[in-house]
Every structure is written in structure tokens, then in C-alpha cells.
């Protein structure tokens, strides 16, 4: 486990110190500590039930930690949840745009929620539609789009307000390899704009795309480093090999 160095702190967008979440007697997240630097793609790996989503919900202000502390975008996740929410983007495991609103209406709604001005929303919508090659879909109801389109749109909406950090919870679940590839291009594009990406995934090839990867087992972080160092450390030729070694130790199944 990495120690947070004092000098790196100012550059950290996410800091977690002994973050813990208990549900009754069950400890979903057990004293995890890490920091994520600005502009980094931080992969958050773990088997089902390892506690990834719970940790992510705490970091995005949806859930208050039982103990420990965390700072996201400069705000305390225990006491300044609404300020945290202003400065982050979030894309949940469940698709969560409005199916019964059109593409542009969803963008307008979330742009408006984050306080963007009307003209700003309009110009940015035009740009986005061009960039995604979505111009013909602009007036379609989101519910009518194929899943890959929806996921790309959901991601674009989650970073529409230029947050400091975006949290992605298994964003590419169920999409085809080509769309996944395009999706990761969008992620790289976001980091080039200075947005920090915090992403959970089950695809080990995607883990290789991350700057740093943490692997959670039974609520604890068992490994955290760049993919290259982790592979060397665990004597594996792929991240899959690293993950297999660590995840096999898990005692808790799906929850």
C-alpha cells in the first residue's frame, strides 16, 4: 500500500485515508487508503462484491463513510458532499439517462442542473454531436438508441460540465469491442482536457490502459501500482495474471 507523500497531496484530486464502510456487522470497505493525481486514469479493479461500488459511492458523495476520511476535488466527502457533487461527474453501472427524453434534451437537462448557461449548453451540444457523429440521433429518444451509443452518450453527459473528476462504474459492461475501443478514446480525450478518470472494470485489457491500477479483495486494497510494475511484481505477463492471483484469495462471493 502506498503512503501519501505530503508534497504530492496538493496535486491529488482524490485522497482516501482509511476509508471504511460498514453495513451492520458487514464491512464492505475496509480501511482503504490511496490518492489519485490530477489528469490520471485510475483503474479500480476487484471481483464482484469486493466493495468497488461502495467505495465509489462514498467518494462521489452518495454514501457517508463509517470511518476514515476522504477528499475529492478539495472537498471532504463526509461533510461537504454537495460541494463534492458540484465538481465531479458520475456514470453508474445502471444506465441512467432518461430514456423518455431525446438526446439533446438529456444534455440540456444535465447541463442545466450543473448550472451551465443556455447558450453554452447549445454550443457545447453542437460540438458534442459532431464529435460523437451523433447529429442524426440528436432528436431521437435515448431509449431508442443501441447500448453502445447510450454508454458513449452517458459518459459525454457525465463530463459535460467539465468536472475535476469523473467516476465510471463499469462503463463498458455489455458493449462490443469496437465500441469499447471508442469509449476509451473518449476517456483519453477527457484526460487531455485535465479531467481525472476513476474507473472500475472487469476487462483486464482495459486495466492495461490505466496509468495506475488498484486491486480490491474482500474490501481491502491488495495491490496498487502501474500495470507494468504490478506485472513484474506478480510475475505475470498480463494484468489478467495479476488479477487471477489476487482475486483467488477472496473469501467472499457475490453480494
Amino acid at each position: 500500500m502506498q503512503q501519501v507523500k505530503p508534497e504530492s497531496k496538493s496535486d491529488s484530486v482524490i485522497v482516501a485515508e482509511n476509508l471504511t464502510k460498514k453495513f451492520g456487522s458487514f464491512t464492505a470497505v475496509d480501511r482503504i487508503s490511496f490518492d489519485v493525481k490530477r489528469g490520471e486514469i485510475f483503474g479500480f479493479l476487484g471481483a464482484n462484491g469486493a466493495g468497488k461500488t461502495t467505495a465509489m459511492r462514498m467518494l462521489s458523495g452518495l454514501s457517508i463513510p463509517t470511518s476514515g476520511r476522504g477528499v475529492v476535488a478539495g472537498f471532504d466527502i463526509g461533510t461537504e458532499t454537495e460541494m463534492v457533487k458540484k465538481n465531479i461527474g458520475y456514470m453508474s453501472q445502471k444506465f441512467s439517462l432518461y430514456d423518455d427524453l431525446k438526446v439533446w434534451e438529456n444534455i440540456e437537462l444535465f447541463g442545466g442542473i450543473y448550472g451551465l448557461k443556455k447558450t453554452e449548453i447549445e454550443t457545447k451540444t453542437d460540438e458534442l454531436m459532431r464529435a460523437l457523429n451523433f447529429e442524426s440521433e440528436r432528436n431521437k429518444l435515448v431509449g431508442e438508441l443501441p447500448l453502445g451509443f447510450k454508454q458513449k452518450l452517458a459518459f459525454s453527459v457525465s463530463i459535460f460540465h467539465n468536472p475535476q473528476v469523473v467516476f465510471l462504474d463499469e462503463p463498458t459492461g455489455g458493449v462490443d469491442p469496437i465500441t469499447r475501443r471508442q469509449f476509451w478514446e473518449l476517456i483519453y480525450d477527457a484526460t487531455s482536457r485535465g479531467i481525472t478518470v476513476f474507473v472500475t472494470t472487469h476487462y483486464m485489457d482495459e486495466a492495461e490502459y490505466c496509468d495506475r491500477v488498484s486491486i480490491m479483495v474482500d474490501g481491502k486494497i491488495e495491490a496498487l501500482d502501474t500495470p507494468a510494475i504490478l506485472k513484474r511484481q506478480f510475475n505475470a505477463d498480463s494484468m489478467d495474471g495479476v488479477f487471477q492471483q489476487l482475486a483467488r484469495k477472496a473469501t467472499r462471493g457475490d453480494i
Binding site: 462521489s60 458523495g61 452518495l62 454537495e82 457533487k85 458540484k86 465531479i88 458520475y90 453508474s92 445502471k94 444506465f95 441512467s96 439517462l97 432518461y98 430514456d99 444535465f110 442542473i113 450543473y114 448550472g115
Partner: peptide
């Protein structure tokens, strides 16, 4: 149920 509530909850809407 649909999940959009969480998207609202994670936004700064009062």
C-alpha cells in the same frame, strides 16, 4: 427503480 434517481442524487440539485 430505473436508476436515474442516483444520477440526480450525485448532481448538485438541491
Amino acid at each position: 427503480e430505473i436508476g436515474t434517481m442516483e444520477q440526480i442524487n450525485v448532481s448538485p440539485v438541491p
